[in-house]
């Protein structure tokens, strides 16, 4: 990331649609949209404005690299004569516009799993390679945001091609990568005053956002805690649903299923969750994780110990989704604090 490349541009708020339209000539634009009373990321249609007055989306945008249902191969004909059909069409490049820094961080976390020297998930890689990231600083972090714990933060630019800040009447957009810069090149140049405003906003957000101190110590701490009774204590109220894992931007577990409609079939990857008992149930009936506490332990251990051990990074970006949406208020921040104290 060379500083000389750094480019500061701006758009008046009421011109945002014009900019989107320019982007849409070459890119599919994925942006926050309002759905009922909350926000989800989705592809913008013609003349559709992004909904940028939001804190964060209910679901993370991970589905754009790792769709909840994704076809691996298709096939047809009778069962003992089928061969896989697989075609890779050219895909239009995409821009995820308005994605929050924690969700960008999560993408970087997922990259380590899906694209590494052992094996590459070609489906993930293709979507990832064809997507540019225009991330969006958070002027109003939620009370449940704790991204600052993870070498991230409300204005972290890591992983972005361009970075958007809301400075009141306008958005400033800073180019970060060469590609990002090229795309925003035609926008009017920003000035020092705008950057100063951004700095103030950033400072405020950095002050507001919470941080779990010494999170780096958690993986080590967890190493000896597999047999600790704390797991039973923290999981007793858990309902074993898929909310925390499906909304989490870093959860990556999936299932592979076949599906037939008449003679046509497809094999798909579907999201799955370690919180569901059937996740680990053997064909023989053997069940290595019979109890809720074992599944809760797996979720926490996977994120904060196993993942770190394998990929040198904790699999959480502090987005807070699991905290706000769990039907019984199981709070990962509380769990981490508890673990620290043990």
């Amino acid at each position: 990331m060379k500083d000389s490349l750094k480019n500061v541009k701006y758009i008046e708020k009421d011109k945002i649609l014009d900019f989107i339209k320019v982007l849409q000539k070459d890119y599919t634009v994925i942006a926050p949209k309002k759905v009922k009373d909350f926000v989800l990321f989705g592809e913008l249609k013609d003349n559709e404005e992004p909904y940028l007055d939001f804190l964060n989306s209910r679901q993370s945008p991970k589905e754009f690299y790792f769709p909840q249902t994704e076809t691996i191969v298709e096939y047809e004909g009778i069962i003992d004569k089928r061969v896989p059909k697989f075609s890779e069409n050219d895909m239009k490049k995409r821009i995820i516009f308005g994605i929050r820094p924690c969700d960008v961080k999560s993408t970087l976390i997922l990259d380590k799993l899906f694209v590494n020297e052992d094996y590459i998930d070609d489906y993930y890689k293709r979507l990832r390679d064809n997507t540019l990231i225009f991330s969006f600083g958070c002027n109003n972090p939620k009370t449940t945001c704790f991204c600052a714990s993870f070498e991230c933060g409300p204005f972290s630019e890591e992983g972005s091609d361009a970075f958007i800040t809301d400075i009141g009447d306008k958005f400033i957009i800073e180019g970060i990568t060469e590609q990002g810069n090229k795309i925003i090149d035609k926008l009017p140049d920003g000035d020092g005053g705008m950057l100063k405003k951004k700095k103030e906003i950033k400072k405020n957000s950095d002050n507001v956002v919470s941080c779990i101190e010494n999170i780096q110590k958690i993986p080590e701490k967890l190493r000896g805690m597999f047999e600790n009774p704390v797991w039973e204590e923290i999981s007793e109220r858990c309902l074993g649903c898929g909310v925390c894992t499906y909304l989490c931007p870093t959860c990556h577990c999936f299932d592979i299923q076949d599906e037939m409609i008449g003679e046509d079939g497809r094999r798909v990857k579907n999201w799955d969750s370690c919180m569901f008992p059937i996740f680990t149930l053997h064909g023989s009936g053997h069940q290595p994780r019979e109890f809720r506490f074992q599944r809760m332990r797996q979720r926490i251990m996977h994120k904060f110990n196993y993942y770190e051990e394998n990929f040198n990074i904790i699999a959480c970006s502090g987005c807070g989704r699991c905290v706000t949406e769990c039907p019984v208020n199981i709070d990962v921040r509380e769990i981490l604090e508890k673990i620290k104290k043990l």
Partner: peptide, 17 residues
């Protein structure tokens, strides 16, 4: 262990890390 992907992605078959 119960498996799906076979290549360390689907997160199903782990024992610890």
């Amino acid at each position: 262990n119960r498996m799906k992907c076979g290549i360390g992605k689907c997160g199903r078959c782990n024992i610890g890390p």
